[in-house]
Design a protein around this nucleic acid. Structure first.
Lengths: 217, 217
DNA sequence: CATTGTCGAGAGCACTGCTCTCTCACATCA
DNA sequence: TGATGTGAGAGAGCAGTGCTCTCGACAATG
């Protein structure tokens, strides 16, 4: 069935188990709870042996980050099949953040000290939602664009980034994407990180709805 | 001159020195660089002696957080004296975040593991900008409020919070504040945390301008 | 069969926050 | 002045982290 030696098989299995345990620890105790020594302990392995399977802690974090980006982007993908709207993007991300608060913080919160995400491993899953959003905002809805745009060169870097992902948005769409993106993620961060004080947990969806509406979508 | 004993004097001096070193370490190496042992070392003191002056690490963090909130709010205060606009709030916060990226992350990034900010020490400095913003948005500018508001009970918690701070905003103003706040902080987070990829460092102000403009202010 | 490579064990390094006990100098007070 | 008490610092120690190095046992491969 599996065209690989039992040796390789076991290796892959152990690696999968490590990321599984890592994800569980992340969910349970946040990033500081993800400890290689603890994972080794759970595998019934001495602490140094874990480095046979994972180069170092940061390598494990890269896997967890890629997982998280993929998971939230999949959720948004699914939701958009039923209702192709900015609001759906927002509420779906919000719901995901509620289910996986620590994964949310991992990908959208403060960068991890002494960690640099390897771009070739994280850019694609990490930009999927941005691409969806830009496509969504590029559709010819009735845009009342009274707003002033920045000089075109200011958006060069962003435009190039989007072009590498196969998009050809004009400046108005780029600026709208940046704004919606910032607002949606800003709101979710504020909610997840408790910056609005207590009592808002019950009305998160209404706030997202109000925000998207205020943004004009 | 000082109506305190030399004993108390020295104590206060040492405490001030600790927070000064703490802030410097925060600026230099981020939160993980703030180590009580390292501070003690710099004071020429053995590691355990530091606990004479500071209950534990979290107590020091509370001081640093209060400092940071006060610093950024002061900056916004000053700037608003010259130009009382939402854009000024945005660019001032953005500039401050550029000068103090690690302090920014401390107050607006991922919550610190195993740390709970004592509300009575941080709420007031932590909400000053929100108050400013709400006042700013409450002024009778020409509001084209085509947007739908959430049901009034959804904003109860936020309304109460603002009332405790001496404000009496209506629902439209609350929702606008939440939106602008989320977008502005969301944008700065995205810039500081590198979520837009490389190349945007040169045009941060333009992006803030475009965002505020897109928001209709 | 012999060589090569992999996996796990174990010791060790440097670092963290924090606690406990002890000593000593100083300030206060009878 | 002499006894008493207090506060600062020293030092050892605990539990935990990431990570490295070496060595032995075993399996896969030529």
């Amino acid at each position: 069935m599996t065209n690989s030696t039992p040796r390789q098989q076991a290796r892959l299995e152990t690696e999968a188990q490590i990321t599984r345990i890592g994800n569980r620890m992340l969910d349970a105790d946040g990033l500081e709870g993800v400890s290689l020594r603890a994972i080794a302990r759970e595998l019934g392995i001495v602490s140094s042996a874990i480095y046979r399977y994972v180069k170092n802690r940061n390598a494990l974090l890269t896997i967890l980050i890629r997982d998280a980006f993929t998971s939230i982007a999949d959720a948004v993908d699914d939701a958009l099949e039923h209702d192709n709207s900015v609001l759906t993007v927002g509420v779906t991300m919000l719901a995901w953040s509620r289910t996986h608060p620590n994964r949310w913080a991992l990908i959208y919160g403060t960068p991890i000290p002494d960690y640099q995400a390897p771009r070739d491993e994280t850019v694609v899953p990490g930009t999927r939602i941005m691409v969806l959003l830009t496509n969504l905002l590029a559709e010819p809805t009735v845009q009342t664009s009274r707003s002033q745009l920045p000089p075109t060169h200011a958006l060069d870097a962003l435009r190039e980034g989007l072009q590498e992902l196969g998009l050809e948005p004009d400046d108005r769409v780029i600026m709208a994407s940046v704004t919606v993106w910032s607002a949606v993620i800003g709101l979710i961060n504020a909610l997840r990180f408790g910056q609005f004080g207590p009592g808002v947990e019950q009305v998160e969806d209404e706030l997202m709805q109000g925000l998207v509406s205020t943004l004009g979508h």
